[in-house]
């Protein structure tokens, strides 16, 4: 993956097009500073009617529904849905394991493209986006960007990022939770190969802030299917002790273990009302992304 001035390569054109058409709707009702495409929990007095509320002293009489008063002889205030914009916070795992690749793209490359695409999508919706890297012990969030003109800053940060961390992503994630905006959407892109218990324990905190959390579990195709048959020496990307094994012997048990791990994560996420999506990095990003966005849109309805 090139860096510096070729950061625009991070945008997958097909993914951007397909995602744009679908949009990234906040699954939860987010609270934004601007009026955007997303519904706000604050009932306003705009275009879309939401509900009636009984009139109370101090209410603005302009919002009285006189027709309802005529029918029921009681005073009601009309309330409307108020559109707002939201903040998307993208956290990318930059531990060494993300460097694994069995094809052209490593998991980290895939994660960067994914983050770039999502950023572009969000900014183009006039929502705000911020980006952070975890797993290197220095979790930082870029300044919040809410105009498309700020996209190059994000892409530049992605292009310059390296997956060379070997520290706990849970620790870094914990450090960032206090800085995460309330009522925002947080997307965690990681291969989740570290001890998942610590990470899962943080989910309630995020949800407590009324922030939506989305876990994009990125795995390489080789990690999922384990295609190795013969004698193979597996050398760890994060300094683990090398293992020499006969691939064919382990494949079935390995696949079972991966499946169990994924299932466990999914169950834990569901428990905390967190979206969990397993993404095969060998599949086209556009497919994986549009599939999820379609799913989100269906939930919106």
């Amino acid at each position: 993956m090139s860096t510096d001035h070729q950061y625009l390569d991070l945008l997958d054109p097909e993914a951007v097009n397909r995602a744009s058409s679908l949009g990234l709707y906040a699954r939860l009702v987010v609270e934004g500073a601007k009026v955007g495409e997303h519904r706000s929990p604050q009932k306003g007095f705009a275009i879309e009617f939401a509900q009636h509320r009984e009139y109370g002293a101090g209410d603005d009489v302009r919002h009285l529904d006189w027709k309802a008063h005529a029918k029921t002889d009681r005073l009601f205030i009309k309330q409307y849905e108020q559109d707002t914009n939201f903040v998307l916070q993208i956290l990318v795992d930059c531990t060494g394991s993300m460097n694994f690749s069995s094809g052209k793209l490593s998991k980290f490359d895939f994660a960067r493209v994914l983050a770039a695409t999502l950023s572009h999508l969000v900014l183009s919706q006039r929502d705000a986006v911020t980006l952070g890297f975890i797993g290197n012990g220095q979790p930082e969030l870029l300044p919040l960007s809410d105009t498309p003109g700020r996209l190059p800053l994000i892409l530049n940060a992605l292009a310059n990022a390296r997956a060379d961390g070997a520290l706990s992503i849970a620790e870094d994630f914990k450090k960032l939770t206090t800085r995460l905006a309330r009522r925002s959407i947080t997307i965690l892109i990681s291969d989740l190969l570290q001890n998942e218990e610590d990470l899962l324990n943080l989910f309630p905190d995020v949800r407590y802030q009324n922030s939506e959390l989305l876990v994009l579990h990125v795995m390489d195709d080789a990690e999922l299917s384990f295609p190795y048959k013969g004698k193979t020496r597996f050398e760890g990307l994060e300094g683990e002790v090398p293992l020499t094994l006969t691939g064919g012997e382990l494949a079935e048990a390995y696949r079972e273990a991966v499946k169990a791990h994924s299932a466990k994560l999914q169950r834990a996420c569901e428990r905390h009302d967190v979206h969990y999506v397993l993404i095969n990095s060998s599949n086209p990003l556009s497919e994986s992304l549009s599939e999820y966005l379609t799913f989100r849109r269906r939930l919106q309805r």
Binding site: D191, T232, F234
Partner: peptide, 13 residues
């Protein structure tokens, strides 16, 4: 005949 593979998912192995 041993093939060397850089590997990430050591925990499962």
């Amino acid at each position: 005949q041993t093939t060397v593979v850089p590997w990430a998912a050591h925990r499962f192995l």
